[in-house]
């Protein structure tokens, strides 16, 4: 699954630690999500969407 978490975070000028704190996970979790090595749970995906003010589909995309 591809995602735009790193892009959206950069657009808000946030550090990984700040994003992690905002959505209630560790910085390591943010690193793993951004690298596409860890797929977040649905509640976490929804929290990320709410935080970035976009829909979940705008952040996450299934691989072809």
């Amino acid at each position: 699954m591809k995602n735009r978490v790193a892009e959206l975070r950069s657009s808000k000028n946030l550090s990984q630690e700040e994003l992690a704190q905002a959505v209630g996970i560790s910085r390591q979790s943010v690193i793993a999500i951004e690298k596409g090595r860890f797929n977040p749970s649905l509640p976490l995906g929804l929290r990320l969407g709410k935080f970035f003010e976009v829909s979940v589909e705008d952040i996450f995309e299934l691989d072809d």
Partner: peptide, 13 residues
């Protein structure tokens, strides 16, 4: 402190 106890974080995985 580092929120590694979160149920949705990578630590559980």
């Amino acid at each position: 402190m580092v929120r590694s106890d979160s149920a949705e974080g990578i630590e559980r995985e």
